[in-house]
């Protein structure tokens, strides 16, 4: 049984690929590990690939939502990629909305989206500096 999900650091982003079904404790550990790594590496983006995941139930939905909310508080964006269409339909019927979490169909699109989200923020910061200088 899987005990921990690996988190890879690539530049300013963290990459998580969920490959197999796992129990609730692992999901909660992932949430904690990710929060720690965001702070340690000052990461600006998290990409979570769920293309191999067979299902997202309400517990998993809550964990994913919490990861997105927590990372946002730590100045970091989360993008969920690779959701299977069957999971999207099932989640909607179950009643999970995952509000506030950005999604992309592929990992590539997800990285583009993260870059866009991150650069939008940098522009804001430099704009703020200009105002401060004036």
């Amino acid at each position: 049984m899987v005990e921990r999900i690996p988190i890879l650091k690539i530049g300013e982003t963290l990459l998580v690929t969920i490959q197999v079904d796992f129990h609730d404790r692992v999901a909660l550990a992932l949430q904690e590990d990710l929060t720690d790594k965001i702070v340690t590496h000052s990461s600006k983006g998290v990409l979570i690939d769920i293309s191999s995941l067979e299902m997202v139930d309400s517990f998993m939905g809550r964990v994913l939502g919490n990861i997105a909310k927590t990372s946002r508080l730590l100045d970091c964006h989360t993008v969920l990629v690779g959701m299977q269409p069957a999971i999207a339909i099932t989640m909607t019927e179950l009643g999970i909305s995952l509000q506030g979490i950005s999604t992309a169909l592929t990992a590539e699109d997800g990285m583009e989206l993260l870059k866009a989200l991150m650069s939008k923020k940098q522009k804001r910061v430099s704009h703020g500096r200009q105002i401060a200088r004036k």
Partner: peptide
């Protein structure tokens, strides 16, 4: 046990010929 049960249900629903969508609904 819950992880194992999900895997078992996935297996049996595949055997019974459920569509991918219905398998996902059952397991969820």
């Amino acid at each position: 046990d819950l992880v194992l049960a999900r895997a078992a249900i996935k297996l049996h629903s595949t055997d019974l010929g459920f569509s991918k969508l219905n398998q996902t609904k059952i397991v969820t």
